[in-house]
Simulated scan of single mutants.
Amino acid sequence: MNNEKIVRICIDDFAFKKRESYGTLMINIDNHQIVDILDSRELENVTEWLEKYPNIQVVSRDGSLTYNNAIAKTHPEAVQVSDRFHLLKNLTDYCKDFLMKYFSSKIIIETNSVKKVAFKEKGLQLPNCLLTLEAKMEKANKLLQDGLNKHQICQQLSLEFPLLNKLRKMTEYERVMYFKNSRQIKHEEKTAHKRLLIDEVIKLHNMGHSMCKIAKDLDISRHTVAKYLENDVDAARGTYGTKRKSILDPYLDKINALLYRGYTCNKIE
């Protein structure tokens, strides 16, 4: 295809192997055909790649700073727009975050948590059905060493046979990633994105850009730029993994036990 005919494109990254190697895909918006594929999403490679398409006027992309900077450098007059998927995703994420903060005073008690407290009160060992998947897998490995076959283990631990086989075929790293919950994964993704932003701020500062210009170019506040330039800046959120204190904390075990016995919220009050 003639590169000079490419005017409106959509670019996005994709994973060759998730969390390890990524590439960049270019699609012609006018005919929805794939234009080109790059085996990288690094700034220098993307910049060199985009220079091969001199007549680009409109680019649909995600929120990547790398793509933003590459497009601005190679096609400063081009219009950059967010693609529909990321617009809807961002809207959903913001709505979810707002609702989580709005309902932060409400206590959500899961059924399994209530049952665990009841077993703890009686000094009993947790039944296999209440164990986490990670704990079940540890127990399954021990039972295999004791001579039990997979069908017996699945029946004893309330595990599905295909899932047990799938987990045993995984590497240690793959199992660790599989056991992570969505909150952990989201935290790691946010931390990685923040680390990239910090690196970009430091890079621009070392190039002689003022804090005001950096803030404008990266669409962040000047206070954030100053914070990211501090020597002890850390991309990880300091409060991650810590539970917010509540006046009900001393009574949670008792509340869970009463709920397990059938008490309503009104009666507990």
Rank of each mutant, 00 (worst) to 15 (best):
A15Q: 13
S246Q: 13
E42C: 04
T171S: 14
S40H: 05
Y251G: 04
L197V: 11
K267L: 08
V81K: 08
K227C: 02
S221K: 06
K180T: 03
E172W: 09
N149L: 08
E77S: 13
G147E: 12
I27G: 01
H75W: 07
H75A: 08
P162T: 12
A257D: 09
I71V: 13
C154I: 11
A226S: 06
E51I: 03
H86M: 08
K267T: 15
I108L: 13
I9S: 03
N128D: 11
T132N: 13
Y263H: 12
C10K: 04
K106G: 07
Y260Q: 11
E44T: 13
L126G: 03
D13P: 00
L259I: 12
L248N: 07
Q33E: 13
N181T: 10
I6R: 00
L163I: 12
T66L: 01
F103I: 05
I27Q: 02
I71M: 00
G123R: 02
L91P: 00
S182N: 05
A78C: 05
R175G: 05
Q155A: 14
M26N: 01
T264H: 05
E189V: 07
L88T: 14
G123P: 01
V225I: 14
D146M: 11
T132Y: 02
V81C: 04
L131D: 04
E48V: 07
P162E: 05
R168Y: 12
Y228H: 02
Y263A: 10
N68T: 10
R195A: 10
H209W: 09
L91C: 07
D219F: 15
E110Y: 03
L126N: 10
I29Q: 04
R261L: 11
I185E: 08
E134A: 10
I29S: 03
S21N: 10
T171L: 02
V201R: 00
I153H: 00
L229H: 00
V176T: 10
Q152G: 04
A72G: 03
K18F: 15
K203Q: 06
